[in-house]
Design a protein around this nucleic acid. Structure first.
Length: 834
RNA sequence: GCCCGGGUGGCGGAACUGGCAUACGCGAUGGACUCAAAAUUCAUUGGCCGCAAGGCCAUGCGGGUUCGAAUCCCGCCCCGGGCACCA
């Protein structure tokens, strides 16, 4: 095979065939040797920070990685040619369950397993031709990174942003750990293992992300992100405005309850309060047993027990009117709006964790309440007038307020009748405040972030438990707390650290007495919440990073990753950035970490998501071994718009590979496959070159890479037809250099001598005066249908254009005397209406 | 149910603000080169009618606005994604 290639190389008019393996290896080494993409913090060029989401090291790269790093790399190279100092770091999100599960299976320590996977992935990334400042490489599991992850945890703890609490948490039996809310899917299963998540009461560590709910919502204004990601974040934060007020527990006659308990309810519709015909507590609500009457107690207890044992999944799957299970407590609450008692129920459609865990029920304007009221025979009163043709049940639309109070009501404390909903809301809140019954309240769906994990392969939580002093933080100078190597991996539901006495037993930092360590580790999302900051100052031994270094590079100019991180990672990273800025660790003015975000589409194969578990992976390594990295990159870029999902079947590696071959034979200085252009052809080509520069420059900014690849092919086809010029070929190579770095670098060196480096060239500029043309094709339509095409002067006037159009024989055939109307848009179009 | 995307040849897709629909590539068919193949290269390639010139029909379906609609508006259908007892 190799002999044949050499033989062809000596043939008349031929150059050696392009050898991707040799050329790619050569340039990958060259970029490292030259340090082309290493950048210092005091680099005088304007800074530009490009970041692809750091990967979980799962072994050799898959197509998702290829897509991600191809985009990232071409921006790094493009911005460098544009004159920026481009920060392009790479690291590995190296803690996490798969390494630990592998350890349980094989007995190999997660660290060894992980380091091997990092080696494999690094090799793939390098072979793809993606360039990074490898001096800045970091991994979540390296000791100095652990140290500062723990350091940040302790600062959060000091400032009340980390706390421990017993809570009903999501327990995944498959993963043998608790999960964050964000890791539980809508159907109540674990996003990772697919197991049904159970509720367990456990002491857990939380981050107080809810302190930042409003900022996290407001500051979405500051970022240039895909609209759907912004929307998803907004929905996740789930801000709602309403009122909270209290109602005393009473009996059926309105006499106060011996406990003098009051039920606090939250509502977004205080305007409908006159329609409250009952109230509901969540089954877990502390007043549930207190309020229950003796007659109802047995039923109430049974219901609480039943709700407790119902998994979230069952609660959700039993959707529907009849399933709005609940029980009467026997007690009532006093509705201050009507001055009447209404029955107090327990129902599992009310959640303890949202609002106050108790609601006022207004069946007339809430479908869930309507369904529940029907089943339990409770009255329904409309307080908003539905349209005449309304045939539905609960009415949630606009309309004038009615029955507030009901006609003939004896207690008229407040009159909302006839008001529009917004006015009625404001008036109802005002009234509650006047009488000291309640106030307006903003509520969020966002919950605090549960960060404890009962697993080994994660960042240890730096806490010691002392019998006398309770939970004591490990002092900064004892960080990092690192898990020992000699542990036994067993899926027991506890961290293996619990059984390692050398690790477990320690002394209390306060009193020096015997104490035990916290054995839970942190969610890996903690690691990924600040790595982009560490990259700016990766060797700092005193602090996680220097604020000035962060101020220099952040916010990240272009962040690139999968849309699957739209909520979890991006929300957490935003929270960390804000909290660290507020604590004075990061620059105070840094409110958002990622200025621009690009979320790439997924790779599918035959309609299915490509994944190891589906066994439908196409290995990039195989393509790298054959067609090479440039063909893989171009094929990937050409398949479609970057944001779209792509089906691997549509990726034309062959087409890209052929194009590279054509480029090679066109641009190689020893090749005479394409002759030099002369005369008019040379002039046409010069103009077309400027046109190409203008087009591709614009498309680079718009992420329209697939059309740029098409432009390169068209231009190459043109040169094959009309001949080449040095100017045209050099411009083509430079424009293509970010996308196909190896072949362009090699050709550039062949054309310009040893040491010439295309990636150090300035991005070409087009000359606007060269975009003009001698003639344009004017389309002549008759009633909107194209009937003729005529070459005209680009500066043609309206009258001349019409005259030429009317003179056309082809047009005359469709005309019968004077046209009724003529629309002229010279020089492109004349449309004639007969 | 609600909120976003999207539906264009055999396939991936192009058409930036309404103005030449189907760029570019894949695949397919035919030719050149070759003993042969690969590679390369040239040509054809939305459908229908026609010997041809040419004509008609096509951007999910049905309406509308406009001289002119893949593009804007209204009503549907289908696909993908997100959210969904949040009071």
């Amino acid at each position: 095979m190799a002999d044949q290639t050499a033989e062809q190389g000596t043939a008349e008019g031929r150059v050696p065939d392009y050898d991707p393996q040799a050329v790619e290896a050569k340039w990958q080494q060259r970029w490292v040797d030259l340090g082309t993409y290493e950048v210092d913090n005091d680099d005088p060029r304007p800074p530009y920070y490009v970041l692809s989401m750091y990967p979980y090291p799962s072994g050799a790269a898959h197509m998702g990685h290829v897509r991600n790093y191809t985009f990232g790399d071409l921006i790094v190279r493009y911005r460098t040619m544009r004159g920026n100092a481009v920060l392009s770091p790479m690291g590995f999100d190296s803690f996490g369950l798969p390494a630990e599960n592998a350890a349980i299976k094989s007995g190999i320590h997660p660290r060894i397993h992980t380091d091997e996977r990092i080696e494999e992935l690094t090799s793939s990334i390098v072979r793809l031709g993606a360039v990074y400042d490898w001096r800045r490489k970091l991994t979540s599991h390296q000791p100095d990174y652990i140290r500062f992850t723990q350091w940040i945890f302790l600062r959060f703890l000091e400032h009340g942003l980390a706390y421990k609490q017993k809570a009903a948490v999501n327990w995944c039996p498959g993963c043998q750990t608790v999960l964050a809310n964000e890791q539980v899917l809508a159907d109540g299963t674990c996003e990772r293992s697919g197991d049904v998540v159970e509720a367990r009461d456990l002491e857990q560590w939380f981050f107080k992300i809810t302190d930042y709910a409003q900022q996290l919502l407001d500051d979405l204004e500051l970022v240039d992100w895909p609209e759907r990601v912004v929307t998803m974040q907004r929905n996740w934060i789930g801000r709602s405005e309403g009122a909270e007020f209290s109602m005393p527990v009473v009996d059926a006659d309105g006499n106060s309850h011996p406990s003098e308990a009051e039920v606090h309810v939250y509502t977004t519709r205080p305007d409908t309060s006159f329609g409250m015909t009952y109230a509901v507590l969540a089954p877990e609500h502390e007043l549930a047993r207190v309020a229950a009457t003796d007659e109802q107690r047995a039923e109430v207890d049974a219901f609480i027990e039943q709700a407790r044992n119902t998994s979230e999944m069952d609660r959700l799957s039993s959707e529907g009117a009849l399933a709005k299970r609940g029980v009467f407590t026997g007690a009532y609450v006093h509705n201050p709006f009507t001055n009447q008692p209404v029955p107090l129920y327990l129902a599992d459609y009310v959640l303890l964790s949202y609002g106050t865990g108790a609601i006022m029920a207004v069946p007339g304007e809430d479908q869930r309440d309507w369904d529940f009221a029907e089943v339990h025979g409770l009255p329904i009163i409309r307080t908003v007038q539905p349209p005449d043709d309304w045939e539905g049940k609960a009415y949630t639309g606009d309309g004038p307020v009615i029955n507030s109070p009901a006609p003939g009501a004896t207690f008229e404390s407040l009159d909302l009748n006839g008001m529009e909903i917004d006015d009625a809301k404001a008036r109802a809140i005002e009234w509650l405040e006047t009488w000291g019954l309640g106030q307006s309240r903003v509520n969020y769906r966002l919950r605090d972030w549960l960060l404890s994990r009962q697993r080994f392969w994660g960042c240890p939580i730096p806490i010691v438990y002392c019998p006398d002093h309770g939970a004591v933080p490990v002092p900064d100078d004892e960080l990092p707390v690192i898990a020992p190597d000699d542990v036994e991996f067993k899926p027991t539901g506890e961290s293996p650290l619990n059984h390692h006495h050398g690790f477990l037993n320690t002394t209390c930092p306060e009193c020096g007495g015997p104490a035990v360590r916290e054995t839970d580790t942190m969610d890996t999302f903690v690691d990924s919440s600040w790595y982009f900051l560490r990259f700016t100052d990766p060797t700092n031994e005193d602090r996680p990073f220097d604020a000035a270094a962060v101020a220099h590079w952040l916010p990240v100019d272009q962040y690139i990753g999968g849309v699957e991180h739209a909520i979890l990672h991006l929300m957490y990273a935003r929270f960390f950035t804000k909290a660290l800025a507020d604590l004075g660790v990061a620059p105070n003015e840094l409110r958002e970490p990622f200025r621009r975000l690009f979320t790439q589409g997924m790779i599918r194969l035959g309609g299915e998501k490509m994944s190891k578990s589906k066994g439908n992976l196409v290995a990039p390594e195989e393509i790298l071994d054959n067609e090479g990295a440039d063909a893989l990159r171009l094929g990937q870029l050409f398949v479609g718009p970057p944001a779209d999902d792509v089906d691997w079947e549509g990726v034309g590696i062959q087409g890209a590979y052929r194009f590279i071959g054509r480029l090679w034979r066109l641009a190689h200085p020893a090749s005479d496959v394409v002759p030099e252009a002369v005369g008019d052809d040379a002039l046409v080509i010069e103009r077309e070159t400027h046109r190409l520069i203008a087009r591709v420059s614009d498309e680079m900014e718009r992420w329209s890479y697939n059309t740029s690849v098409a432009a390169f092919m068209e231009f190459t086809n043109l040169l094959y037809k009309q001949g080449r010029t040095d100017f045209a070929v050099d411009a083509l190579l430079k424009l293509l250099a970010p996308m196909a770095p190896h072949v362009t670098a090699e050709l550039w060196e062949l054309r310009h001598g040893a040491g010439a480096h295309i990636h150090e060239q300035a991005w070409p500029e087009h000359d606007p005066s060269m975009l003009t043309v001698d003639s344009v094709t004017m389309v002549v339509q008759v009633k909107g249908k194209v009937r003729d095409r005529i070459e005209v002067d680009p500066g043609i006037g309206e009258d001349d254009a019409v005259e030429i159009a009317l003179a056309s024989e082809r047009v005359q055939e469709y005309l019968d005397g004077e046209p009724r109307k003529v629309i002229a848009k010279p020089p492109n179009l004349v449309n004639i209406v007969p």
